[in-house]
């Protein structure tokens, strides 16, 4: 798919930063507001798919290769499993929440009941949200990008 008209490109230039900020907000505040790693990653990948549709996949393919995105996806998966294994080491079980209640990062425990939002809570949940967010962003974006590029060229050049 080659690029579209100038109207579409201008609209995407305006909408893309807003989409990115909203998606990263959903990922970062996954332990406070509705949403989480998967939802925010889907929103950010939607913004990237908007770029692919507007500017054409060849232009996007010059900026970033699919191997780099695939390695980002693997980094997210390995980070997720590493946090879970740290729960096995420092706590008792796999996926154990070893940071909640400690004085380390994200260690505060909120008061029971309907309380205000404190960002420094949640234990390992923000770290897992971040890992799953990176994984979903790279995974969904590489699916759309590779399908668009493979349908635009007849034979892949080596």
């Amino acid at each position: 798919m080659s690029g579209m008209s100038k109207i579409v490109k201008t609209a995407v230039n305006i909408l893309f930063p807003l989409t990115m900020i909203f998606g990263l907000y959903v990922i970062a505040h996954g332990h406070l507001t509705p949403g989480g790693g998967f939802q925010g990653g889907a929103i950010v990948a939607s913004g990237c798919a908007m770029i692919v549709v507007a500017y054409g996949s060849k232009w996007v393919f010059k900026q970033i290769k699919e191997k780099r995105l695939s390695s980002f996806e693997s980094i997210g998966a390995v980070g997720f499993i590493a946090v879970a294994l740290l729960g096995l080491v420092f706590s008792t079980v796999f996926f154990g929440n070893f940071l909640a209640g400690s004085s380390l990062l994200f260690g505060t425990i909120p008061a029971t009941g309907s309380t205000g939002a404190d960002f420094n809570t949640g234990g390992v949940l923000p770290l897992m949200n971040f890992a799953v967010g990176v994984k979903v962003i790279a995974g969904l974006f590489v699916i759309v990008l590779v399908m668009a590029y493979a349908s635009s060229v007849k034979e892949w050049d080596t």
């Binding site: 959903v26 998967f38 939802q39 889907a42 798919a49």
Partner: peptide, 13 residues
């Protein structure tokens, strides 16, 4: 949020 992101944008793309 998941339905709006995946269903409305990515699958349409």
């Amino acid at each position: 949020i998941a339905e709006a992101g995946v269903g409305a944008c990515l699958s349409t793309a």
